[in-house]
Design a protein around this nucleic acid. Structure first.
Length: 699
DNA sequence: GTACATCAA
């Protein structure tokens, strides 16, 4: 046999249930509830609803919501909590007197698909009794909607208009254990609101692990008498199949190679069922896919009856390629999906019976001292490992092969560090200030972020003019900045654009910078793609290049074919168009004049500097760059159009990313005089015509 | 010479 036999050895220390809370319902249930206007079908919808595990807890849940201000619900995968609890509340009268039952989700797709399901079950038109609200897509009626699903980010936005959330009688935070930035903000604010609104009920849906933490946080009872507790708790069992966990006998030196071997071993020795393998990044995914495809060819030459179909899955993959992982395969074929963490929570692939878990994930980390973001390959948490394993138990009993020893598993942290503690807090601080939280250092965070991150954020907001010297939100700049659904530097740039006479161009640039992977290329078309991409690039840098791309996109009637021919991300550009529209409306509202630089690039570049002056770097004689703030070494990211070109002396950039080095992303050439002129409070002219940061002098 | 986890407003 030409294919190398696997050397991977696993052992199984006893079975472990994958039970983790989750998310979307089984697709069969959707099918069953599709017909609603036939009375018999409606009856079966009712029966279907009663079969869900959560139904047994209906009265208890309603009792708890009645008696406690907050209820923590520990609901495992497939228990039906997301779709049923809002309906129980509605049936019990919680939407009386025009009040709304709100349910938040971390992701847009979840918000819309769950809303769809519930509307179907109730035989209602989506957008009337049951609706949803996500960015760019508000499908709800302020008079008719009683159950509203929304993204947690959207709830954060709604608080700006309705600080006490008076429209709602109950808010359910679904998937709270994921601890996204917006969920955490909402949690802190809801606790504050509850002190003023005793009638507001909060339901936190979470995994087992964090339930106690949520309960302690929301319990306002300090008397020690459990009868006075303000937070109740209930557990609902799930409906999934058991997953056998296997560990390696010894540590694996190379998990990429081990993944390939394990897939082959499964293919050789296991029954039918598709395979899902988790890796950390695009490059690893492509390597494994490549190696497996080669093996698959060898195997089929040797007449193995079952074929392998190996497919990559990561966010940067073109949409049509992504869709391939959802296609059904004939029974003679075994599907193998090699994915990044996107498959852990964001998407669900049907038919998975085997999971391979390398124990690592790429996570964002934030250094509050240097204000630099990095992407670091980090060991996953136990919660994450359990979530990954659970992916194998959705259609029948499955198996999870962990490419690490049981001993190493025990060393993993219980749960992932919340996003709040590993990101730039400038947007959070601005948001909290806008909601009247004066002392952000004393805000009641569920998991307080490092104090230095908060100080760093306050400093930046002050430099941008969003806060005054007392740390209060400035009028009108700070107030307007907070309203933008963008980071403060972008908001500042937009608000200034009218004064520079280039608001039309800046709106486009800001919108384009919000989407990733504008330029796309499959590994086998890299050369042709690069040739096409070069047609858009300009010497000034990435910002004006993106402006070119968007203007060309509009000139060609936003055609998807044109995008394909030029290796551009069509869906991304469409998204940019709607973001652009939203921003344009906001500029109108703030009375920023609409004007165009009419082809003069300098005005645009100066406007960019007015927002991004803090992110400036100068060329060092070594060929790399140094930040003006604290003389840190930086490099131009290989994805920048300036990479490999003659390096400009001075640049500003959108963000820094640390992988193997510190890379600047979205880089544009500027002139040093602009920095002094546009940020005199930040930089001053030093000797030999160089610039110095005032900040670094102080510290 | 080098290279982007994921989601959201």
């Amino acid at each position: 046999m030409a294919a190398p036999r696997s050397t991977m050895k696993f052992w199984k220390p006893g079975s472990e249930a994958p039970g983790v809370s989750e998310e979307r319902e089984l697709p069969t249930e959707t099918a069953a509830s599709a017909v609603v206007h036939n009375p018999h079908a409606a009856l079966s919808v009712e029966k279907q609803r009663q079969k869900l595990p959560v139904f047994k807890h209906r009265n208890n849940i309603l009792y708890l919501v009645e008696s406690y201000q907050t209820v923590v619900i520990v609901g495992e995968t497939g228990c039906g909590k997301s779709t049923q609890i809002p309906q129980y509340l509605l049936e019990a009268g919680w939407a009386a007197e025009g009040k709304v039952i709100g349910v938040t989700q971390p992701r847009r797709v979840a918000a819309t698909s769950v809303a769809n399901r519930v509307a179907e079950e109730r035989g209602a038109h989506l957008g009337h009794e049951v609706g949803y609200s996500i960015r760019f897509d508000d499908c709800s009626d302020p008079h008719a909607t009683r159950i509203k699903f929304l993204t947690d980010g959207m709830l954060a936005r709604e608080m700006m208009a309705d600080p006490l959330l008076q429209a709602y009688s109950v808010l359910m935070l679904d998937e709270a254990h994921e601890r996204t930035l917006h969920t955490d903000i909402a949690i802190g604010l809801l606790k504050k609101i509850q002190r003023k609104r005793r009638d507001l009920r909060v339901i936190v849906a979470s995994a087992t692990l964090d339930a106690k933490k949520f309960q302690n946080f929301f319990n306002l009872n300090e008397s020690g008498d459990p009868n006075k507790d303000t937070c109740g708790i209930v557990s609902v069992e799930g409906r999934t199949f058991p997953v056998d966990i296997f560990y390696t006998l010894s540590p694996v030196p190379d998990y990429v190679k081990a993944t390939v071997e394990t897939v082959l071993k499964i293919h050789e020795t296991e029954d039918d069922g598709d395979v899902l393998a988790f890796l950390t990044g695009q490059e690893e995914v492509e390597t494994v896919v490549c190696m497996l495809q080669e093996q698959a060819r060898t195997l089929s030459r040797h007449g193995l009856k079952k074929h392998l179909r190996v497919l990559p899955m990561y966010a940067g993959l073109p949409y049509s390629e992504q869709m391939r992982v959802f296609e059904r395969v004939p029974p003679t074929v075994r599907k193998v999906v090699v994915a990044t963490n996107i498959a852990e929570t964001s998407i669900t692939i049907n038919g998975i019976v085997f999971v391979i878990d390398c124990a690592f994930v790429k996570l964002r980390a934030y250094d509050s001292r240097t204000a630099i973001d990095s992407l670091v390959v980090t060991p996953i948490s136990k919660a994450s490992a359990s979530q990954r394993a659970g992916r194998a138990g959705r259609i029948r009993a499955g198996k999870c092969f962990r490419l690490y020893t049981e001993e190493d598993f025990e060393k993993l942290p219980e749960s992932t560090v919340p996003e709040m503690q590993r990101c730039d807090l400038a947007p959070v601080v601005l948001h909290l200030k806008a909601l009247g939280v004066d002392n952000v250092l004393r805000f009641n965070f569920l998991s307080p972020p490092p104090a230095q991150s908060l100080v760093q954020a306050l400093e930046l907001l002050y430099a941008l003019g969003g806060l005054d010297q007392y740390g209060r939100l400035s009028e009108p700049v700070g107030v307007h900045m907070a309203e933008f659904p963008l980071s403060p530097m972008f908001a500042k740039m937009l608000l200034e654009s009218g004064n520079f006479g280039c608001s039309k161009e800046i709106v486009t640039i800001a919108a384009m910078m919000q989407i990733q992977n504008v330029f796309v290329a499959l590994p086998n078309q890299k050369k042709a793609a690069a040739r096409e991409h070069r047609k858009f690039s300009v010497a000034e840098g990435d910002h004006l290049t993106m402006l070119n791309v968007y203007e060309a996109f509009e000139k060609h009637q936003k055609s998807s074919r044109w995008c394909q021919e030029h290796f551009l991300n069509y869906r991304g550009l469409v998204r940019a168009a709607s973001i652009r529209e939203q921003l344009r409306r906001m500029l109108n509202k703030f009375r920023v004049p609409r004007n165009s630089s009419e082809g003069d690039p300098d005005v645009i570049l100066r406007c960019i500097v007015s927002g991004f002056f803090a992110n400036a770097a100068r060329l060092h004689h070594s060929g790399s760059y140094r930040t003006l703030r604290d003389d840190r070494e930086l490099h131009i990211h290989p994805n920048s159009v300036l990479y490999g070109e003659k390096p400009p002396k001075w640049v500003v950039f959108n963000e820094v990313l640390q992988t193997s080095k510190y890379f600047m992303r979205d880089v544009t050439a500027v002139e040093s005089a602009w920095l002094v002129e546009l940020a005199p409070h930040f930089y001053k002219q030093a000797k030999h015509g160089s610039l110095a940061s005032k900040r670094s002098k102080i510290l």
